[in-house]
Design a protein around this nucleic acid. Structure first.
Length: 471
RNA sequence: GGCGGCAUGGCCGAGUGGUGAGGCGCCGGACUGCAAAUCCGUUAACCCCGGUUCGAUUCCGGGUGCCGCCUCCA
């Protein structure tokens, strides 16, 4: 069984993984700042893809680079008066922390630009030899865009129709569209020795070099944001196929949509309207964040607002509750078997069809709804959904949700349940309220519930005792 | 100016040439001391104008609107 991916170069569905192996390359961050929720979309989405493929026994290689040498890093270091290495270390660590908060596993390989200088130099040499690049003698090396006729195919633009910005006019370039493969270093800047003198690599060349090195058979899928289509990916493509025309570089390009604020539009570091991932997770939780991203297709832009995330949190909770309720079942009824089978098939079909996560999630809701319906009519059958419970859990884990096991504690004969353990005072208040309820002292009970509410907790009463959760 | 994408019910958001996903919300009901949660029921959409077709939200053409890219950007 193979996976279909909508390739943004050809516009066609491309089959991937026929041989049971899938190599994915995703453009990672330039580490000069904390990542915002727009940056989070790629790692989170590809994390789900990889989890899914592995669950179906594909041999997956996920490569996500870290750009650790770039103008913005150097500028930031100069601003702060620290070394560029310090900036890189700080924001790489920050990136990793945020991935962990979102429950995103690290890629199999996380290559860094500065660890691939020799590979990049070798690639540039190949380009010069094949007349796709030139060294005008000032220490720079440029890609000769006009030497590569297909240039523009990925971004669907024709070079002669592109706006020729004269920004930073470099007389050394043959054409304004030509871009730097290697930049001569100025005094005090980080530099590496090369055949063209001391300098550092251009931005695009690192990905070309690292794809070739870590995915020697070519990338089955190359991911990144739509904003990278041009110039970054266009240039990567020109570099790699220019240098090695007989080698497959990428089979399918998959570009994800931008994250916008529902009210103010696109978020970008350069616009200053960013929301740090750490804050987003603190605000809404990892599950809401994932549900939000998964309920729209990766290729589409998506809006962020606190209201939207709150909605996702609720939706997610409903699913997790039912899953938890039935996952302790001892047996499996016919209905359970049928629903489990249907869920598995629908989920699979959706994911294989260009990773249609909204459809996949819808299957989950629908099946859950039917089980819940049955349980509400015949409460006793809640114990007969072992197979569906297992199927749901498996999928929820593939989607990267935190299942948040419910814990319980017995205090003075009152059984209190919770996902997140409350402080002792809170717990005692909950118990006190339950005792008031048993005495039918509704006034006291309501007062205590209000107090708990103000302290950030919600209490739900059930015949088996109260459940406390974060408001 | 050039190129690309998208327009679906109150909101989010899949999909399809003909039986109108899914989520959130609203409303009514069951349950509950009251809530909450859960369940039941209800509500409601395919931007506009042409064309193709027995039939289009789905295909084609035109229009309008929004977004992205063309410069660093996930």
């Amino acid at each position: 069984m193979s996976i279909s991916v909508r390739d943004t170069l050809s516009g066609q569905m491309v089959e991937v993984g026929e041989n049971g192996r899938v190599g994915v390359y995703v453009c990672g961050p330039t580490v000069y700042n904390h990542i915002h929720i727009g940056n989070a979309r790629a790692p989170l989405f590809w994390d789900v893809v990889v989890r899914y493929l592995r669950s179906r026994d594909y041999e997956v290689m996920l490569v996500q680079n870290i750009t650790d040498i770039e103008d913005k890093i150097i500028n930031k270091a100069n601003e702060e008066g620290v070394s560029w290495e310090e900036i890189v270390d700080r924001y790489t660590a920050s990136f990793h922390e945020r991935l962990e908060k979102m429950g995103v596993a690290l890629p199999d390989v996380e290559p860094r630009a500065t660890e691939h200088i020799p590979e990049m130099i070798s690639l540039i040499e190949d380009l010069i030899e094949s007349d796709h690049a030139y060294a005008p003698g000032n220490g720079d090396v440029y890609y000769d865009v006009r030497s590569y006729p297909p240039y523009g195919a990925l971004s669907k633009q024709r070079p002669d129709e592109m706006r020729e910005t004269e920004k930073g006019t470099t007389s050394y370039k043959k054409s304004p569209l030509d871009f730097a493969l290697w930049k001569a270093s100025k005094p005090g800047e980080p530099a590496w020795e090369s055949p063209w003198g001391s300098g550092r690599p251009g931005w695009h060349i690192e990905c070309s070099a690292m794809v070739e090195k870590h995915l020697p058979d070519g990338a089955d899928i190359h991911g990144g944001g739509t904003d990278l289509r041009f110039p970054h990916h266009e240039n990567e493509l020109a570099q790699s196929t220019g240098a090695h025309p007989d080698h497959t570089f990428v089979r399918a390009w998959a570009h994800h949509g931008m994250v916008n604020f529902a009210d103010t539009g696109k978020m970008a570091k350069s616009l200053g309207n960013i929301l740090d991932v750490e804050r987003a997770v603190d605000l809404h939780g990892r599950n809401a964040l994932r549900m939000w991203l998964l309920q729209s297709h990766y290729s589409q832009p998506i809006d962020y607002s606190e209201e939207i995330l709150e909605e996702k949190r609720r939706a997610c909770e409903r699913l997790l509750r039912l899953s938890r309720q039935i996952s302790g079942s001892g047996t499996s009824s016919d209905l359970s078997e049928r629903l489990a089978k249907e869920l598995g098939e629908r989920f699979d079909t959706a994911m294989r069809d260009d990773f249609n996560t909204p459809e996949a999630v819808a299957a989950l809701f629908e099946v859950a709804g039917r089980a819940g319906q049955e349980i509400s009519i015949h409460p006793e059958v809640a114990q007969e959904f072992a197979s569906l419970g297992a199927a749901m859990e498996e999928i929820l884990i593939v989607l990267g949700f935190d299942l948040l096991e419910e814990a319980e504690i017995d205090v003075n004969g009152v059984r209190v349940r919770y996902e997140e353990e409350p402080r002792k005072e809170t717990l005692l208040k909950v118990v006190k309220r339950e005792e008031a309820r048993r005495k039918k002292d509704w006034a006291a009970a309501d007062r205590l519930r209000d107090e708990l509410h103000d302290e950030g907790w919600t209490v739900e009463d059930t015949p088996e005792g109260p459940i406390v959760s974060r408001r």
